[in-house]
Design a protein around this nucleic acid. Structure first.
Lengths: 157, 157
DNA sequence: ATTAATAGTTATATAATATAGCTAATAATT
DNA sequence: AATTATTAGCTATATTATATAACTATTAAT
């Protein structure tokens, strides 16, 4: 007899395994891993007053001075409308600035401030350190393999 | 000169690459892939009146008759409080039933109905077919490798 | 000159996730 | 046995990510 009474079976089985048949679905397994990494990264970024979305946008802006909100939306796979509050948050935190473009008065050229670049560097370092902990079980080669396989999955018509 | 004017550079660069430095962060790449698979799966499940969370719970219930809501929460890594509405939805759709347990009147024994099992089978099949499309670029061995690597990433203290 | 398209914005909706506090029931402790 | 602690389910609520529709101002295309 492997199973004890219902209420005990949970602690006995260590709560693992009830989702066995879901784990064979790649989308489920990817999501599970993603949730773990997201929650962890959110904790790291919180120390810098950043969320995942604001961090992502900050990195893009640091890497590409004078980028526009639409370009950020396209790069990060999000809706233009959702970039507004994200850019607002970064601007109010003094990490980036919206600058008018003489040649096109519809769009803003976004540029990181010195503070923004410092925060970005520190956050990137902290994330890298933390990811080292999260991935300590995987060799460098395995990490590269994982990355390479993931990016080959794309939206299909 | 690689860059044209600002507004043209976006379409020229095909919107790809602005997030290059983010892509070296595993959490970012996993999330990106996860979003793609989630959005796709959501579209498939929608045809059965299911969402990802209700589908996941339904599968666990079908696989483990008389499971409790707490066990589902533990298996799916979610809060107990959030299982309530999910189980409500499945019950109202007639896919599962809450049955009282004589030995413990606090908990419910959840069991799928015949309809629930039929829907589950059809949804699982539809998801598998669709995942075949999403993963057509990856060999069976690569898919197995990807899965194996993903499950080795766990929450760390 | 008219029309179409683009950038940013606002408002709103949905879904997933998280926390706090509550009741009823069971288990553990004194 | 009486008290205390824990558990299961529930309610309310908050946050975050994501999505759509509609609007204004500006620029591009016809």
């Amino acid at each position: 007899m492997v199973e004890a009474s219902k209420t005990q079976s949970k602690s006995t089985a260590e709560e693992g395994g009830l989702d066995a048949s879901l784990r064979s679905i790649l989308g489920y397994t990817v999501k599970r891993t993603s949730n773990i990494l997201q929650a962890d990264a959110a904790g790291v970024l919180d120390r810098f007053g950043l969320r995942i979305t604001t961090f992502s946008a900050l990195v893009v802006i640091c890497d590409h001075p004078d980028v526009t909100q639409s370009q950020i939306a396209a790069a990060l796979n999000m809706e233009r409308s959702n970039t507004v509050l994200i850019i607002d948050a970064l601007e109010q935190a003094g990490l980036i600035g919206r600058h008018r473009v003489p040649t096109d008065r519809r769009s803003y050229a976004l540029r990181a401030t010195l503070e923004g670049m410092k925060i970005r560097d520190a956050a990137v370092r902290a994330l890298a350190e933390r990811e080292e902990v999260m991935l300590h079980d995987l060799s460098q080669e395995e990490r590269a393999t994982l990355m390479a396989l993931l990016v080959r999955i794309r939206a299909q018509p």
